[in-house]
Write a protein that binds this DNA or RNA. Structure first.
Length: 308
DNA sequence: GGTAGACCTGGACGC
DNA sequence: GCGTCCAGGTCTACC
């Protein structure tokens, strides 16, 4: 079944896909040859399907193996619209960016949207897994979670392309991101020792338990009316979510008032303005203060001199 | 409110 | 192959 969804323009499918590292985290997968983004999606009914997304005129084309009911079709549309931020409006940011050489490409490249997971639970877990570790370990921990606790994609729901890939021995079987219920049903000890989450295990387990019990409804964060500062406070009540992680989650929610300041930020900002001398958060903040509620985007899409 | 130390893993390095 | 060091954010205890 194929669907075509339109986006608020300007829109670039590849800009969203390449906006940050999420595309490298399971159950996302990107094929550079065909420029196809694959995501293993668990429908509310429990059915697991593969979404294959490609650029289309004015939006995105969604391919799903097999037929979908009207309700499932609506669910897929809502999920993809959220994942790619199809309705998001960055005209105010672009108007400001036109006067800044380092952001001159932002509008032309349709930058601003960042790739998101269908559920906020998945994005919170993945964000916890980015803290205090190297990117390679984040990818490994996420893959372990999906492999050990995700529901498998049935063979009949795999696209012909995916089967071809498996035939080449490059695909060991795909799974959806685990539900809160599934993770709540395991133990901290298993998450620590077998999934190799280390000290993050109790954070992820507690989050799953709270989400599964209904005590914490993470989906309400997506459309919250709270001021960003209050929303940040709510996020930081989640164990394992500190200043950096909350800023990352706020950006995923379309709030850009806080900077995702990590050790990489110190490196690139220092190289840009402070002669590579040691700096702290205050120096990073000072350089982006003038961007106000768009500071997070200005920082994220800045054309940095330091390329690593 | 600010600070120090602990948390845990995997990669880099020296022997 | 083994041991040691280090990077990476957040939490907790303490001041």
């Amino acid at each position: 079944m194929n669907l075509t969804l339109s986006a608020r323009l300007p829109f670039s499918f590849l800009s969203v896909v390449n906006s940050h590292g999420w595309v490298q985290l399971s159950p996302f997968r990107f094929d550079k040859e065909t420029e196809t983004l694959s995501y293993i999606f668990r429908l509310e009914s429990g059915r697991v399907v593969e979404l294959r997304l490609r650029s289309a005129a004015g939006g995105v084309r969604v391919e799903v193996a097999g037929a979908l009911s009207a309700a499932e079709c609506g669910e897929v549309k809502r999920a993809v619209a959220w994942m790619l931020g199809l309705d998001m409006d960055f005209s105010e940011f672009y108007a400001l960016a036109r006067d800044e050489l380092k952001l001159a490409q932002a509008e032309k490249k349709a930058q601003g949207r960042v790739l998101r997971s269908p559920t906020f639970f998945e994005d919170v877990v993945k964000t916890i897994l980015t803290t205090n570790t190297l990117w390679g370990a984040t990818k490994r921990m996420t893959a372990n979670l999906v492999t050990q606790f995700g529901e498998p994609l049935p063979t009949l729901n795999r696209s012909p392309d995916a089967e071809h890939t498996e035939a080449k021995g490059a695909d060991e079987g795909r799974r959806a991101f685990p539900t809160p219920q599934r993770l709540a049903g395991t133990t901290e000890a298993v998450l620590r020792a077998e999934t190799r989450l280390g000290y993050r295990a109790p954070y992820v387990h507690q989050l799953a338990v709270r989400a599964a019990s209904g005590e914490l409804d993470l989906e309400t964060f997506k459309h919250s009316d709270l001021q960003t500062l209050e929303l940040r406070k709510q996020l930081m009540k989640i164990k394992g979510i500190g200043a950096y992680a909350s800023a990352n989650l706020l950006m995923l929610l379309g709030r850009y008032d806080f900077l995702t300041i990590d050790t990489w930020a110190f490196k690139i900002v220092s190289h840009e303005w402070y002669g590579s001398q040691p700096i702290g958060p205050a120096e990073v903040e000072a350089r982006f203060e003038k961007w106000g509620k768009w500071k997070g985007l200005a920082y994220w899409f800045w054309d940095w001199s330091y390329k690593g």
